[in-house]
C-alpha cells in the first residue's frame, strides 16, 4: 500500500498540487511576517514630526481600509459587468459583437491607467471613491471578460448538445452546465483583475480617492523614506493577500468532479 501511494506521490500532477497547497499556507504567512517586520521597524525608530503624523495605527488602518474598499468596489463592478457581459457575448446571436467588446476592454487595459483616471476626472469632475473605482474597474475588466468568454466557449459542445437534447432550455444549459464549467477560468481572470486593481488603487489619491498611494506620495514628496516604505510594503502585502484569496477561491469554488 505504502509503495503505491508513494508512486502516485511522485507524479507531476499531485506534485504540483502539493506545491499549490504549500503556497496556500506559505503565502499569507510570508506576508504577515514581512509586513510585521517592516511595521515594527517603522514604529520603533526615532520618527520626526512629519513621519509620526503618517506612521500611526489610525492613519495606516484608514488608508489600508480605503484601499480595500476601492478594491472591493472594483471587484464587484468587474464581476457584475464582465461575467454577465461575457455570458451574453457567447450566445449565438450576440457572438458577432464579441470582438468589439473585447476590443474596448483591450483599450481599457492598454491605456495607461493614470491617463484614464485623469481623463475620467476631467470629464466628470468627480472626486473620491467612485472617481477612482470606475476607471480602475474599466482598466481591470479585460481578464474577467476574456476568461468568461473563453471559459464558456471551451465547454465541450457535446455537453451543450446533450443538455439541450434531454430537454434543458438554453438558459438552463448556460446556468447549469456552461457557467459552472467555466468557473475555474473566470476565477483565474478575477484573480488577475484583482491584483491589477490593488496595484492601480495606489493611484486613487490623484482624484482624492484615498488609499495607500497617499502614504507613498507623502513619503516621496516630503522625502520621508520610512513613510514611503510603509505605504509600498502595505500595498504589496495587500496585493499578495488578494492573490492568495483568489487562489483559495479557485481551490474551493470550482466545480467538483473535474480532476
Amino acid at each position: 500500500m505504502t509503495t503505491t501511494t508513494d508512486v502516485t506521490g511522485f507524479s507531476t500532477e499531485s506534485g504540483s498540487r502539493r506545491a499549490d497547497r504549500m503556497r496556500l499556507f506559505a503565502q499569507p504567512a510570508a506576508v504577515v511576517v514581512i509586513v510585521g517586520l517592516v511595521l515594527a521597524w517603522a514604529f520603533s525608530r526615532d520618527n520626526d514630526e512629519i513621519e509620526a503624523q503618517s506612521i500611526q495605527a489610525g492613519v495606516l488602518l484608514t488608508k489600508t481600509w480605503e484601499h480595500l474598499v476601492i478594491t472591493a468596489v472594483v471587484a464587484a463592478m468587474v464581476v457584475g459587468i464582465a461575467v454577465p457581459l461575457g455570458m451574453l457575448l457567447t450566445r449565438t446571436w450576440a457572438r458577432p459583437a464579441a470582438p468589439a467588446f473585447i476590443g474596448i476592454a483591450n483599450i481599457g487595459q492598454a491605456a495607461p491607467v493614470l491617463g484614464v483616471l485623469v481623463l475620467f476626472f476631467l470629464w466628470t469632475e468627480w472626486e473620491g471613491l467612485w472617481a477612482a473605482a470606475l476607471p480602475i474597474a474599466f482598466y481591470s475588466l479585460l481578464p474577467v471578460l476574456r476568461n468568461t468568454i473563453t471559459g464558456i466557449e471551451s465547454v465541450d459542445p457535446a455537453l451543450v448538445d446533450a443538455g439541450r437534447g434531454i430537454g434543458m432550455s438554453s438558459s438552463g444549459v448556460l446556468l447549469r452546465i456552461e457557467l459552472p464549467l467555466a468557473i475555474p477560468l473566470i476565477l483565474a481572470g478575477l484573480r488577475t483583475s484583482l491584483v491589477l486593481a490593488v496595484g492601480t488603487a495606489t493611484l486613487a489619491f490623484f482624484v482624492n480617492g484615498g488609499g495607500l498611494g497617499e502614504l507613498i506620495d507623502t513619503g516621496y514628496k516630503l522625502n520621508r523614506v520610512p513613510v514611503l516604505v510603509v505605504g509600498a510594503v502595505l500595498a504589496v502585502g495587500l496585493a499578495l493577500l488578494v492573490d492568495w484569496i483568489g487562489a483559495v477561491l479557485e481551490e474551493y469554488l470550482g466545480p467538483k468532479g473535474l480532476s
Binding site: 457535446a158 455537453l159 448538445d161 446533450a162 443538455g163 437534447g165 447549469r176 452546465i177 459552472p180 464549467l181 466545480p255 467538483k256 468532479g257 473535474l258
Partner: peptide, 8 residues
C-alpha cells in the same frame, strides 16, 4: 456517443 455526461 461518449455519453455526454455532465462532468460536474
Amino acid at each position: 456517443q461518449q455519453a455526454g455526461l455532465f462532468p460536474h
